[in-house]
Amino acid sequence: MTTGTVGAAAMPAVLTTTRSRAPLGRLLRSEVRFMLRRPRTLVALGLLALVPVIAGVSISVAAGMPDQGAGPGGSAVEGIAALLEGNGLILPVFVLLLTLAMLLPLVGAMWAADAIAGEAATGGLRNLMLAPVSRARLLAVKAFGVATLCLLAVVVISVSAVLCGLVLLGGDGMLTMSGTTLPFWPSLGRVALLALLVTVQVWAVAAVALAISTWTDHPLVVLAAATGGIITFTVLNALESLSWLHPVLINASWESLGDIIRDPMPTDGLTEGLLRALCYILIGYSLALARMVSRDG
C-alpha cells in the first residue's frame, strides 16, 4: 500500500513480519488438530457423548415405574424431565441444560487451562512466546482452539442426544412445555438454536478460564478456580436475598434457556443470557490479552 514511500530503514522490518507469518487458517487448523490429538480431549468428548445415552436409558427404564412427579418447586431440569417420556426430541434439551450446570463449563475450563497454563507448565509457552509471532495472535489462535472444542463438545452431546432420544424414547415431533406439538424439523431447529446458545455460555466460562490461565503456570489452578467459581455462583444464584446481584452472574440466565421449549418461544430471557455471556467473553478475552502482552517471556 505505502511501499513506495516507506524509508529504507523500515523496509527489512516489514519484510520480516510478512515472511514469518504463517497463513492464519493453517495455524488454526493445526491448533485444533493438536488439541484433538490429546487423549484426554478424546476421552472427554467420548464421556460427554455417553451422558445422553445414560440419561435416555435411565428415563426409558423409569418410564415403566410409578410416577414420582417433580414438585412445583423443582428446578428447570426436573420440570423438563417430566416431559421426556415418549418425547425424544426433549432429550437434547434436557441433557444440554443438565450438562451446562457443571460438566460443560468444566470441560471448557479444562481446555482453557491446557491452552496457556498447560503450555507454561511444560515449557512450551516460552518457545511460543520467543517465536516471532505477536502475543495477541498467539492468544487468538489458542482462544480459537478452545472455542472450537467447546462447540464440538456441545455438538457431540446434541447429536448423541437427538439419536438416543429418537431411538430410546421415540416421538416424531416435540411436545412443548406449553402443551403444543411441534413438527420434526422445527423441533430440530429449536435444538440447534439451544445448542448454539449453550455453546456461547460455555465460551463465556472458557473465556474467563482462559484469562485465569494466562495468570498462572499451573493448569490445576485454572480448573480449581473454575470449579470453585461455578459452585460459588450457583450458591449465590440460589440465595434470594442476593437477588440484586443475580443479573451480573453468568449462570443467572442458564435456567431461562429452558424457554426454548415453550411455545410461542419467549425471547427476552434468551437474548439477555446471550448478551450477558458476550459481556463475560469480552471481559475474559480482554483480561487474557492484557496479561499476555505484559507477561515476561
Binding site: R276, Y280, I281, L282, I283, Y285, S286, L289
Partner: peptide
C-alpha cells in the same frame, strides 16, 4: 484495547 474491552464488558453487565 484490553482495558477498554474490560470496561465495556463490565458496563454491559
Amino acid at each position: 484495547v484490553a482495558a477498554a474491552g474490560t470496561v465495556a464488558g463490565v458496563a454491559g453487565l
